[in-house]
Every structure is written in structure tokens, then in C-alpha cells.
Design a protein around this nucleic acid. Structure first.
Lengths: 144, 144
DNA sequence: TATTGTTATACTCTATAACTATA
DNA sequence: TATAGTTATAGAGTATAACAATA
């Protein structure tokens, strides 16, 4: 009997292992950080996705979250109830409702982005050289 | 009025930015991967935490998840209903219930670990040199 | 008195199915 | 017919509060 073959190099598994641990820790940190703004994780992710310059169709949010469109209704309901966003009917396609950040929604978004952008101590404490190298390598994961 | 000072070096923010994007993408991937084993994300995380060699008090699970103990009751109920774990009263402290993996629970855990340990293409496609460097830097984030 | 785990309750996120109104 | 968004419903995770058993 043969063991299922690993096409993945062992170096990748080792690196991924640590990255995974780091992500697990950050999950909790993220939840707590946005909770200080009275936001749930998904609400923060949606807020982050909304473009302050452009009304965003709800469909795009569902695609981004990879969830059913029906879920977006509730999430947006709560963001709207708190005055962060407004639904605006699209002039060209009347089926579409686009989301627009309110004045306070833009402020809230900015605060949320700030919290999310704050690197955790694990990262912040690395040397500049390490950080630059890390940045270089990580860039290669997105581009390609 | 002064702007809140950033003690964080800009290199850290840049690296964190990309890491954050990567984590957001992996979130979806993780959910889908463990769903193939009919596991929710939290169930997979709990399973991963259970030591096949040692009964684990429910309290430890609550601490690990950083949630109220009452939540663990439900999560364990579902894992137990599916035959993956059993509650075993602790002989020395009768308040404590410790979790033990069943035979099929151990298999399930192994499969889950395998799925979680599989590096995503973004990582797997990096060069060996990059992977080794990455591993070195990431190791420095955990230790200290 | 403090701790472990449970029950009850409420809220949010998620999936599915059925529906409306548009296209 | 197909698509955008809604409603209804159900399951899961999470928080709080009240409780029983034990320490």
C-alpha cells in the first residue's frame, strides 16, 4: 500500500504550519479589535470592501463574501440601521440596489481600516531587514 | 491637534497588509476544506486541539477558543452526537469533564489535520529559497 | 466562596427555498 | 428565462445570566 503522494515540498508545509498558527491567533485579535467599534467581523469586512467613491451593488458583496445573496440583506440591514450605509436604487438597472457609505459610515470605515491595518506584535517586532524580506516574498504570493 | 502617533515602522504595515489579504483568502478556503469532512471551522479547531493521548478538560477548550464555557457544551454536544468524542468524568475532580477522542474521532482528526496542513497554492508555488527564508522569518515571530 | 459545566435566551452569520420586480 | 434582492426558516457560533454539583 502506497501513501498518498505529497506533491507539496516539505519546505512549503513547514512555512505553512507557522503561518497557520499565526493566522489562528490573529483571528481572535481581529474579532476583539473590531468589536471595539461595535462591529462583527463580517460587518468590518464589508465596510472595508465598500468604496467611498462608488456605490457598490449588493451582488458584489455577496460575491466577495462567497455567500448567498440573502445573507447580504441582513448584514446590510444592520449596517443601515446603525446609519453606516444607505441603499440606493441603481438608475440604469432597477433591480440593483447599490450601497453608499454615509458620512458617519466613512468615519467608521476609516477607524476599522486603521484597526485592521495595525500589525500584531509578532510582526511589528521583526527587524527591518526581516520585514523587507518578508514583504518581498509575500508580494510574490499575490502577483504571479 | 496631533495625529495619533504610529510607533509601527512602515515596513511592518506593508508586510502586514499583504499577510492580511492572504489570511482573508485562506479563511474561505479553510471553511470549504473542513466542510468536506462535515465539520464547521470551530469543530475542526477543537478537534485539532484535542490530544489523542490525553483526556482534555472542557475548560481548556473554552480557554483556547476564548469563549464562554457554555458555548463549549453545544460544540461538544455536536461532536459527541456524531461519535467523534466522548465526555469522561475526571476521577480526581468530579466537576471536570474531560474529552476523549473515539476511534473514529481520531481518524477524523487526522483527516482534518491533513486538510489544514495542506499549503495553499500561493505558498506552495514559492521557490524553495523563498520558502526557507519565509520559514526562518516566521519562526522568529513565534519564539521571542 | 470559587469553579466546572449546563440550561435558557437572544443575536449574528450562513444555507436553502420560495417569492417579487425587474431585465 | 435569468438576475437582484427579499422573506421565511433552520442550524451553528457566541454572549449573558441563572443554576447544580463540587471544590
Amino acid at each position: 500500500m502506497t501513501v498518498a503522494e505529497t506533491t507539496t515540498p516539505p519546505e512549503a508545509e513547514a512555512a505553512w504550519q507557522i503561518l497557520w498558527e499565526l493566522m489562528l491567533k490573529q483571528r481572535t485579535r481581529f474579532v476583539e479589535a473590531v468589536a471595539e467599534l461595535d462591529l462583527t467581523p463580517v460587518q468590518a469586512i464589508v465596510l472595508r470592501r465598500l468604496d467611498p467613491e462608488r456605490p457598490t451593488p449588493m451582488r458584489e458583496i455577496a460575491d466577495m463574501l462567497r455567500c448567498d445573496a440573502s445573507n447580504v440583506t441582513g448584514i446590510v440591514d444592520r449596517l443601515e440601521a446603525r446609519g453606516a450605509v444607505e441603499r440606493r436604487p441603481d438608475p440604469t438597472d432597477r433591480r440593483v440596489k447599490a450601497l453608499v457609505l454615509t458620512r458617519s459610515g466613512r468615519t467608521l470605515r476609516r477607524r476599522a481600516l486603521q484597526k485592521m491595518g495595525e500589525p500584531p506584535p509578532e510582526i511589528a517586532n521583526l527587524s527591518r531587514a526581516d520585514l523587507q524580506t518578508l514583504h518581498g516574498i509575500l508580494s510574490r504570493t499575490t502577483s504571479r
